[in-house]
Amino acid sequence: MQNAPDNIYILVILGMSGTFLLVTSFILFSIRNQNKLLKQRQQFQQAEIAHQKSLLHAIIESQEAERKRIGQDLHDDVGTSLSGLRLMIEMFKPVTDSDENYDSFATSSKSVIDKIVKDVRNISHNLSPTTLRYYGLVAAITEHCTIINQSGKLEVTLINEADQLLQKLELPAATAIYRVLEELLNNTIKHSGASKANIHFLGKGNALSIDYNDNGKGLQPGTEKVMSGMGLQNIESRLLNINATFLTASYSGKGFHTNINYPII
């Protein structure tokens, strides 16, 4: 019996189908593999970010603790010693009652000591704002704004429409926001040439929104350079540490504006 010859066309069709299946499987396998790798890489990056965040948290915490310690030391030790020195000068009696040199020496010494005491108190408050600890964020910011307004360098207006939310604010977050606003005000005074600045606290659901703007020259073109400066980096790291976001608008010549959004859980 003679075998029937193979039909070449059927073999070609089978070959085409088989290759199609093989190639499709190869591609699907490659896609799965690549996406799996991408997922692993993303997980690794997320873990790395979380680790860096915890390191940042530890740095900021220790920085705050150190500031608090130095502030307290300045206030308690240096402040007390200066007060003692002032008292000693006051109590010191010269040999003759009508010594004009002594009177002028005592007056000028006391005024120098008063200035040093005031400066030490300011430095101490800046390092560790007691108002923030005892009366909350708005009180501390108000106090800071009052000092700035009194200096005549800048006119700062504070509007608070988030009283209830601010009550729930914990100290680490309040400290971070205080430091950020302090830095922003500092930048406005130093670099913007502004005469007015506004701070607006607003509650948006469970999120605290803080609008900050001034009427200075704003961010100049080439903002990347400005953004990489230490001040703004500090702002970024402090906000990142409390999971807050911020958006900075650059309107050159129309002032500086930034919005901070902090979700309070």
Partner: peptide, 28 residues
């Protein structure tokens, strides 16, 4: 070393199209 999905890169789709066409058509 990209941070994008396989499907988000247009070159992958084009390369796949060429590979499927030429490998399946080879017997023909």
């Amino acid at each position: 070393d990209d941070k994008i999905n396989w499907g988000d890169d247009g070159i992958n789709w084009i390369n796949t199209g060429i590979l499927i066409y030429f490998s399946s058509g080879l017997f023909m």
